[in-house]
């Protein structure tokens, strides 16, 4: 079955928009991590640098799933694997 190229490109754009919804999860996760880090600094201000580096490491790892969504959106928009 032959599809119109414009139809495929439009659907790719919609798919790209849906793919970046993946950013919700890391946003919530990073917020929770930052909140707990703030609480930890409040309890133990001496360990501020350790807490900050641990928090940043955990947030950067948690960010990965959101970035996969971004990559899918990028591929759909600019590489256009379906519209060839």
């Amino acid at each position: 079955m032959e599809f119109n190229t414009n139809f495929i490109l439009g659907c790719s754009a919609i798919g790209a928009g849906l793919a970046v919804i993946a950013g919700i999860g890391p946003g919530i996760g990073q917020g929770i991590a930052a909140g707990h880090a703030a609480a930890a600094v409040g309890r133990n201000p001496g360990a501020k640098s350790d807490i900050t580096s641990t928090m940043l490491l955990g947030q950067a790892v948690a960010e990965t799933t959101g970035l996969y969504g971004l990559l899918i959106a990028m591929l759909l928009l600019f590489v256009k694997p379906l519209g060839k």
Binding site: T64, L67, L71
Partner: peptide, 16 residues
């Protein structure tokens, strides 16, 4: 794969 994709996607998102 996850190590390299993480770095790549972060820098690419900034560039974009």
């Amino acid at each position: 794969i996850s190590l390299s994709l993480r770095l790549f996607a972060n820098v690419l998102s900034g560039t974009v």
